[in-house]
Design a protein around this nucleic acid. Sequence first.
DNA 1: TCATTAAATTGTT
DNA 2: AACAATTTAATGA
Length: 230
Amino acid sequence: MASERIKEFIASSLWGKNLTAEQRRRVDNETSELVASAGQTVCHRGVRSEYWYGVVEGLVKVSNVSRSGRPTTLVGIPAGGWIGEGSVLKNEIRPYDVVALRDSRLALVPASTFHWLLSTSLPFNRFLIDQLNARLAQFVIRVEHSRSFHPDRHVAHCLAELFNTALYPGTATTLQISQEEIAFLAGVSRQLANRALRRLEDEKLLQVSYGSIRIINVEALRTFASNPED
DNA sequence: TCATTAAATTGTT
DNA sequence: AACAATTTAATGA
């Protein structure tokens, strides 16, 4: 049985709020909670995907360590976001690690519950389509950026995605994250991330401080990512 | 509460 | 990648 905290999280989530009372009762019953401390791997690569994860508070990343030991972060998920539906849908071995970037609280929806929702709830399906579509758009833009070397734009885009209110309604304007992690997230060097952040601060799009950033204008950040004035 | 030290993060080459 | 500078957290008087 989920804690009050988790119940509230589900009830206010983009898909949970549209379930019937009966459906929500079942989800509440079957969802569990996981508290992860900073740096902890929530779910290891190579394990069969048993859960769909919701980020109640904190920040997690989906990452991969190459054979040569180089870490690559594919996507960051702040509070309010959901992750892991791809593997649960395909019932496959999880291809990536899910790691907590700082102390985080997660909601664990079992794969069986997930599939039941998929076959009974139209709003749930709608949410999944929106989520997958948003991810697709995110990666399409990334491919575009990877072909033209514009690290400032790219970092701006990655940050804007992190503050995407359509995907992560719970995200506050301030996020605790180091510049090093932002660099991993954007797939650029720390130097470039540092340079981009100060450029974006100059443009009054965000404010950087020790170990955290505050977004001042998400829309402008998005615009900057696609329409730089340089 | 304050000073000292270690650890984390940032700035620079 | 390496190093220096800065900020925060932890410790103990």
